[in-house]
Design a protein around this nucleic acid. Structure first.
Lengths: 243, 243
DNA sequence: TGTTATTTGTTCGTATGTATT
DNA sequence: CAATACATACGAACAAATAAC
């Protein structure tokens, strides 16, 4: 009887306890063997959970000593990863609203077909959304989704969360994403759709999003007013970085 | 006879072969058992290497099928992580030069002591460096290093690589870092030390860098001219985790 | 369609090496 | 030196997804 992913459950339980302060920063966690005992599992399973915690910046494993609880959340909790607008808005602490400016199904065309790695005449959803925070128009999202991979998308889905539609309704798994950050001068469209008075730059995040089976299904260009942009990254070094 | 980290060697060998095209994108790697045979090792060791490859965006593991070689490196090589200026400059493809504008040892003071999490009167190196690319002054780095953790630093070290001094001379291990990206208006200092004509924004990267034992030893504020800034991030979802 | 073989995912067990206390 | 704790490695069994016949 092979159970579910035990190490994931343990990871979530320990990470929760760290965030709630049951395991305080700068203290050492119970040893791997102690965890293995208390969770009635093997040490390897515990190690998988602890490695996840280390990867995500919760702990630092120190050989011979133990697993030290880190205190990286002093300023800001690491949010690197696939962050949705809703989470971002909450982090900003303001009232968030989304307005769909455009919602069409059309052929990809030269530019987008290259980004999505499909033929020119492949059908793609084009979604243009303006994100409001505290009644200010601060983010412009332009999403392009391959129709055959995301069938049945509606304007209503876009007003909520496209990710939610994909994962809960279509039951497909979003697996990884490549993001590219640059800073450009605002375009005419930026000035038209966003409240850009007094701002002379726009943060452009190009986001390529992939399914479980490594098919690219979405390209998003997210354009942020600079004062409402922040990105936090937690990076762990490889033992031998030979890039 | 416990050898070196076998899975790391295997990781490097396979990643090299992928980058050199011996394993082509969109093809399936040999199975884990085949690798285990050919490397004369156990499947678990192979799996550790493959998980590293997946983490770093080289492959996508698909259950029941195999490990698919990804093609993410074509446009832009992911450089998320602890990137030094030298690597960045090479990526930009220009001639890089570093000029040390200031090099002092002083008490941390109110502001910096908070960033470095030490007492106000703790001694800290202050290093101010201007990075030139193609004879243009485009990046201003302000480093603050806790003296007791990085003793004997010299101006010459700063002209080369501080990381190299720490890892090779002091033989300490840099383990992880937390980065925070924001965009601000250029300060008077930015305009003084950088070639900012025609640019109205500056990309600020606050970098907190930690040793092996989780001690914070360096805080760096890196201020980039927007046209010379780019950051690429590869993020994998937690669903099918690694290790 | 259904069965079988292949391949990856998870768990458990055991042994040994390395660093810290 | 001994005990503790994390790191690496090998082996085995079974689950789940896929592919092939």
């Amino acid at each position: 009887m092979m159970m579910q992913k035990k190490y994931l459950l343990i990871y979530e339980e320990i990470s929760k306890q760290i965030q709630e302060g049951h395991f305080a920063p700068k203290t050492i966690l119970p040893s791997e063997n102690e965890f293995a005992d208390s969770y009635q599992t093997s040490r390897e399973t515990i190690r998988k959970a602890l490695n996840l915690l280390a990867q995500n910046g919760f702990i630092q494993k120190i050989r011979g000593k133990g697993s030290l609880v880190l205190d990286l959340k002093r300023h800001q909790f690491p949010i690197s990863g696939l962050v949705s607008f809703k989470e971002l808005a909450e982090n900003m602490g303001g009232k968030a609203e989304t307005k769909v400016e455009e919602f069409t199904l059309q052929q990809a065309g030269r530019e987008i077909s290259r980004e999505l790695n499909v033929d020119d005449d492949e059908l793609a959803w084009k979604v243009k959304r303006v994100r409001h925070i505290d009644s200010e128009r601060v983010i412009l999202d332009k999403d392009f989704l391959v129709e055959k991979h995301v069938p049945g998308l509606t304007k209503e889905n876009c007003e909520n969360s496209i990710f939610e539609y994909i994962e809960k309704k279509l039951e497909k798994k979003i697996s990884f994403a490549k993001k590219e950050f640059t800073v450009e001068e605002p375009s005419a469209e930026d000035r038209m759709l966003l409240d850009m008075e007094g701002f002379h730059a726009i943060v452009v995040v190009k986001n390529y999003i992939y399914f479980d089976d490594a098919t690219l299904f979405q390209y998003t260009e997210s354009r942020h007013r600079p004062d409402k942009f922040r990105f936090v990254d937690f990076a762990r070094r490889m033992d031998t970085p030979s890039l």
